[in-house]
Lab assay of single mutants.
Amino acid sequence: CHSECLGNCSQPDDPTKCVACRNFYLDGRCVETCPPPYYHFQDWRCVNFSFCQDLHHKCKNSRRQGCHQYVIHNNKCIPECPSGYTMNSSNLLCTPCLGPCPKVCHLLEGEKTIDSVTSAQELRGCTVINGSLIINIRGGNNLAAELEANLGLIEEISGYLKIRRSYALVSLSFFRKLRLIRGETLEIGNYSFYALDNQNLRQLWDWSKHNLTITQGKLFFHYNPKLCLSEIHKMEEVSGTKGRQERNDIALKTNGDQASCENELLKFSYIRTSFDKILLRWEPYWPPDFRDLLGFMLFYKEAPYQNVTEFDGQDACGSNSWTVVDIDPPLRSNDPKSQNHPGWLMRGLKPWTQYAIFVKTLVTFSDERRTYGAKSDIIYVQTDATNPSVPLDPISVSNSSSQIILKWKPPSDPNGNITHYLVFWERQAEDSELFELDYCLKGLKLPSRTWSPPFESEDSQKHNQSEYEDSAGECCSCPKTDSQILKELEESSFRKTFEDYLHNVVFVPRKT
C-alpha cells in the first residue's frame, strides 16, 4: 500500500485506493498535508475557505447554543480562536489581540433580562453583547459592586439597553466600559436606550469621564423622579442622539420631579488639616426662599486615587461607600458681607490618608415646582503625618564578641513616609551569675543571650482551647457569634421535631 494509506488498500502504491488515510483526505486521495488554498479540518480532512465560511455563517444565523462559528488559524479551520487571539470578521482569520481579548457573548432569543446578581454573573467577562440587555433589578445585597464585577467589562451592545423598574439602582456607572450601543435591534418605538419607572436612579454616568455613542435609535425617559433633566440632556449631547427624540420621548413632568437638581456650584473657602482632623468651610448658599434650606450634607471617604465619582458603590438597598454628615444651616444675616460661612470639623480620621470630599445642599421643593440647590466639586484632601507606631517583631542576635545583629519589621501604621529608623542602645553591667558559677561542674549549661522565638506554653494553649472559665478566673470563653447562636437554635429545633416524629412513629394507638 501507499505510504499515506492506513489499515489496508485495494490497489498497491495508489493513494486513492486506501481504506483510511494516515494524515489527511483531499478529493478522494490521501495526502501528507493540505496544500494551499485548503485548510486542515478536524485533523483528517482538507477543506477550502468557502466550506469553513459556510459553517461560520450557519452557526451565526441559527443562534443555536453550542454550535461553533468556525475560524481560520495556522492553516486550520477550527471552532474558535485560541487564547490571546480574536477573529477578523472580513476573512475569519485569528489575529493577536492588542491588550485583553474581546469576548463576544451571543444571547438566546436576542435579549437577556438581568433581574438578579445570579443572572448578571452569566455575563461575567463579556466585552461584546450580541443582542439586547434588559435591566430589571428590584433589590439585593452589595448590588453596585456585584454588577460592576460582572457587567463592568461590557464595551458594546449590538441591540438596545433597557432599564425598567430597577428600584435598587442609583447610577449606571457599573457599566464602566460601555462605549457603544449599535441599535441594530430596537425596542418598540425605535428606541435604543429605554429608561422607565426607576424610582431611585439619580445618575446615568459621570459624563466628564465617560463617552457613549448610540449609532441608531432614540432615547426614552419616563417616570424617573430623581433623575434630573440636565442629566438626560447631557446624554443626548454626548451620545449623538440630540435631535432624534420626539416631543413625548422625554417626559418633562415625570423626570426629576422629586430630585434636588443642583444648578449652582458650592466653593470651599477654608481648608485646614491635622493628622486626624480636617476643618472645612464653604461659601454660604440661600435659595430664593431661605426657609427652603434644610441644611447641608457632607460626604467623605478614603480615596487612594483621584478618580472618585459621587455615586460609586451606591445602591438604593443601603450600600453606600460614603460617610454622610448632616449639618444645620448657619444663622442668616441681613448683611451679605457678614454672612457666616458654614463648615464642619471632621474628626477621627487616619493620618497621612487622602480623602475625597464634597458637600451639597438639602432643600425642600418650592411652590413653583422649581428645584434649587448647590453642590461642590469633589475635592481631595490629605491629612498630615504623625509619629508612626512601633516597629514590629524586633530580633537581636550576637554573632561574635563585638557585634549584635538587630532586625525588625516595619510598623503596622507608618502614618507617613518613613525615611529612617533611630536605634538606641545602652551598655549593661555583666551578670554576677557568670562569676559565681563553678565551671568545672559536669552538665553545666552556660547562660545564653542568643534570641529564641517566643512560644506559647501548654497552660496558655489549654486556656485558649477551654470553653469555660478556669477556677483562677484568668480566662473566659469568647462570646458566641450570631451565626453560632442561630445554628444552635436550628439544631435544637431539629432535635425537638425529630423526637416528636419518633414518638408518633414508635407509639401507635392500640386498636379498641
Rank of each mutant, 00 (worst) to 15 (best):
Trp352Thr: 06
Pro351Leu: 02
Lys301Phe: 03
Gln306Ser: 12
Val238Phe: 07
Lys337Phe: 11
Pro287Asn: 02
Ala303Ile: 03
His106Pro: 09
Ser116Phe: 07
Trp205Phe: 10
Tyr372Arg: 03
Leu196Cys: 04
Phe311Pro: 12
Ser333Pro: 08
Ser338Asn: 07
Met297Ser: 07
Gly139Cys: 01
Asp257Trp: 11
Leu362Thr: 02
Pro330Arg: 15
Asn190Ile: 13
Ser158Ala: 12
Glu246Arg: 10
His233Ile: 12
Gln339Arg: 07
Tyr380Phe: 11
Asn263Val: 06
Leu279Asp: 05
Thr383Asn: 00
Lys162Leu: 15
Leu123Lys: 01
Arg347Ala: 03
Ala120Asn: 01
Leu349Ile: 05
Arg179Lys: 13
Glu155Asn: 10
Leu227Ala: 02
Gly373Ala: 12
Arg176Ile: 08
Ile188Glu: 08
Thr323Tyr: 03
Pro342Arg: 06
Trp352Gly: 01
Gly110Arg: 04
Lys234Leu: 05
Thr113Leu: 12
Glu156Ser: 08
Glu283Val: 08
Gly110Asp: 06
Tyr167Phe: 08
Ser166Thr: 08
Asp197Ile: 02
Glu122Gln: 09
Asp335Gly: 03
Leu345Trp: 14
Pro329Thr: 14
Ile163Cys: 05
Val390Ile: 06
Arg247Gly: 15
Thr371Val: 13
Lys242Tyr: 06
Ile181Thr: 01
Ser274Gln: 04
Leu229Thr: 05
Phe268Ala: 03
His233Pro: 02
Val104Trp: 14
Phe221Ala: 15
His222Arg: 13
Val381Ile: 14
Phe268Ser: 01
Leu123Glu: 01
Ile114Ala: 01
Leu133Ser: 00
Lys234Trp: 09
Gly318Ala: 05
Lys112Thr: 15
Leu349Pro: 01
Val390Thr: 15
Ser396Ala: 15
Asp315Gln: 11
Leu153Met: 06
Gly131Lys: 01
Arg165Met: 14
Ser400Ala: 13
Asn200Gln: 15
Trp282Ser: 01
Thr371Tyr: 07
Gly110Gln: 13
Gly189Leu: 11
Leu147Val: 14
Gln354Lys: 02
Leu178Arg: 00
Pro411Leu: 01
Asp328Asn: 09
Asp312Tyr: 14
Glu264Thr: 13
Glu262Pro: 09
Leu294Pro: 14
Gly140Leu: 13
Ile379Cys: 11
Ile395Gly: 11
Tyr380Met: 03
His233Ala: 05
Asp312Lys: 04
Gly243Ala: 13
Glu262Trp: 09
Tyr305Met: 14
Glu187Ala: 03
Thr364Gln: 03
Leu186Phe: 04
Gln199Asp: 15
Gly256Arg: 05
Ser171Met: 04
Pro329Met: 12
Tyr191Glu: 09
Leu123Ala: 05
Arg291Asp: 12
Ile135Thr: 01
Val381Gln: 05
Pro394Ser: 14
Gly295Arg: 02
Val381Phe: 02
Lys337Tyr: 12
Ser260Val: 12
Thr386Arg: 09
Ser398Cys: 14
Phe268Pro: 03
Leu133Val: 13
Gly343Phe: 04
Leu266Trp: 01
Glu283Phe: 13
Pro304His: 11
Ala303Leu: 03
Trp207Arg: 03
Lys209Thr: 11
Glu146Asp: 03
Tyr194Gln: 07
Thr127His: 10
Ile163Gln: 01
Ser132His: 03
Pro342Ile: 12
Lys242Val: 15
Pro287His: 12
Leu219Arg: 02
Ile163Met: 09
Phe358Thr: 07
Ile181Tyr: 00
Arg138Gln: 06
Ile157Trp: 00
Thr383Tyr: 00
Tyr191Ala: 06
Phe174His: 05
His222Val: 03
Cys261Ala: 07
Asn263Glu: 12
Ser274Asn: 00
Asp326Cys: 04
Ala316Val: 02
Ser119Asp: 11
Phe268Gly: 00
Asn224Gln: 07
Glu187Tyr: 05
Asn263Thr: 09
Arg138Trp: 02
Thr254Ser: 07
Glu184Val: 07
Asp393Ile: 02
Lys177Ser: 12
Ile271Arg: 01
Phe175Ser: 01
Tyr305Ser: 06
Tyr194Met: 11
Asn150Gly: 06
Trp344Glu: 03
Gly313Asn: 04
Lys267Ser: 08
Lys360Arg: 10
Ala303Met: 04
Gly343Ile: 15
Met346Gly: 05
Ile278Pro: 00
Thr309Phe: 11
Ser173Arg: 08
Cys228Phe: 03
Pro388Ser: 04
Glu148Cys: 02
Thr118Arg: 05
Glu264Leu: 11
Leu178Pro: 00
Glu302Pro: 09
Ser333His: 15
Arg138Cys: 06
Thr353Ser: 09
Met235Val: 05
Glu187Met: 07
Leu406Gly: 04
Val170Tyr: 14
Lys177Tyr: 06
Phe296Lys: 00
Lys409Asn: 13
Asn200Phe: 08
Ser274Gly: 03
Ile181Arg: 00
Leu147Cys: 02
Val390Pro: 13
Lys350Pro: 02
Asn255Tyr: 03
Leu227Glu: 00
Ser119Arg: 05
Ile135Ser: 00
Thr371Met: 12
Thr273Cys: 14
Leu331Gly: 15
Ala374Val: 09
Ser166Ala: 09
Gln354Met: 00
Ser208Phe: 14
Leu186Glu: 09
Arg124Ile: 13
Tyr355Phe: 12
Ile395Lys: 14
Leu362Asn: 01
Glu122Val: 08
Val128Cys: 05
Arg165His: 13
Val104Ser: 12
Thr361Gln: 07
Tyr305Trp: 14
Asn141Trp: 08
Leu169Val: 13
Ile278Ala: 14
Ser239Asn: 02
Cys228Glu: 01
Leu161Met: 08
Ser376Pro: 01
Asp393Gly: 04
Leu133Lys: 00
Gln382Ser: 07
Asn200Tyr: 08
Ile214Tyr: 04
Lys337Ala: 08
Ile114Met: 12
Trp207Val: 11
Ile188Leu: 11
Ser260Arg: 14
Gly189Pro: 03
Asn198Lys: 00
Arg202Tyr: 14
Thr383Ala: 01
